[in-house]
Simulated scan of single mutants.
Amino acid sequence: PNVKIINDGTRRNEDRHGAVACLQLTVKSCAVDDHLVVIGGDTLFREDFSLRKFTESFFEVQNKDKESHLVLSYQCKDEETSKYWILELDEDLKVQCMKEKPLLSETRSRNAVCFLLYCMIQDYIKVLFVLIIRVNIFNVFRQSMGQSQASRRPVYVLRISGRFDVGNLPSYIECDKYFRNQLQNPSVYLM
C-alpha cells in the first residue's frame, strides 16, 4: 500500500530521459525532503548484502561528517580494472581517488564501485537539479570526488562480495545459476 509508481511517459527506448531526469521527477512527484536511497533495477546483490546494514552504515558516516555519501564497492579481478570505476581508499574506507577504467598498471586498487545503490544526503539532492544535463547519476559522485581536496564532499565505501548487473543474456544466466545453485540463505532476501 505504500508503493507509488511514477511513470515518466516514455514509450520508446530512444526517448528515455535518463537516470538523473527520472530521479528529479521522482523527487518532485513525491515531494522528497529527506535523505534518499537510490537503487538501480537491473542490479542484484549476493547474499552478504543487507539494505539494513547499508542504511545503518550511511548514518554512521553521517555521524563523521554530515556531507558524507556512501557507495558500495567489491573486489574485482586484476583483468577487470579496465572495465570499472576503481576507488582508491584510505584505512577508514574513505574514497581518496576514483579512476575511470584504469589500466592494471595505473592503480593497485581492485575496489570496483557499484553505482546503482546510493544514499544521498538531503542537501545534495538539490545538486541533481543543477546536474540534470549530465549523462547519468554517477556523475554526481564523480563531480563530488573530483573537486579539490578542500571542497570535496566525503564519500565512504561499504564493501560487499559482489553483484550481478543483469543487462544481457549471459549475465542473466550467471545470476540465475547463482540464485538456483549457490544461494545459502534465501530468507536473507525477505528482510
Rank of each mutant, 00 (worst) to 15 (best):
Y172C: 05
C76S: 01
L158N: 03
R108C: 09
I160T: 06
V95A: 12
S82N: 07
S148R: 12
C76E: 04
V71D: 01
E174G: 10
P154Y: 00
E91V: 07
S82D: 12
K99V: 06
S82W: 07
P102R: 06
I133P: 14
F115D: 08
K83L: 05
S161I: 11
Y124M: 13
S109M: 05
G146A: 06
A112K: 01
V140Y: 12
L89N: 00
C97Q: 15
C97V: 04
Y118A: 02
C175V: 05
K83T: 13
C175Q: 11
N185L: 06
P102V: 00
S148F: 10
N185R: 14
S105L: 15
L190A: 10
S151N: 15
I125K: 02
V188R: 14
L190C: 14
F138A: 08
K77P: 05
D90N: 15
R134Q: 12
R153W: 10
L70E: 01
L158H: 05
K177F: 13
V155G: 04
D123C: 13
W85Y: 12
C76V: 08
M120N: 03
R163T: 04
L117S: 04
N181K: 11
Q182K: 10
S82L: 03
C97G: 08
F141P: 01
I133T: 14
E88P: 01
V188N: 05
P102Q: 03
Y178V: 00
Y74E: 06
R142L: 12
L87A: 14
S161K: 11
R159N: 10
M98A: 15
V127A: 14
S187Y: 05
S144T: 09
V127P: 01
L169C: 05
E79R: 08
R152E: 06
R180D: 05
L103E: 10
G167L: 05
I125Q: 03
C119E: 04
R110I: 03
Q184F: 00
R108A: 12
C114P: 00
S73R: 06
Y124N: 14
V135A: 12
L158Q: 13
P154L: 02
I133V: 08
V127W: 11
S82Q: 14
T81P: 00
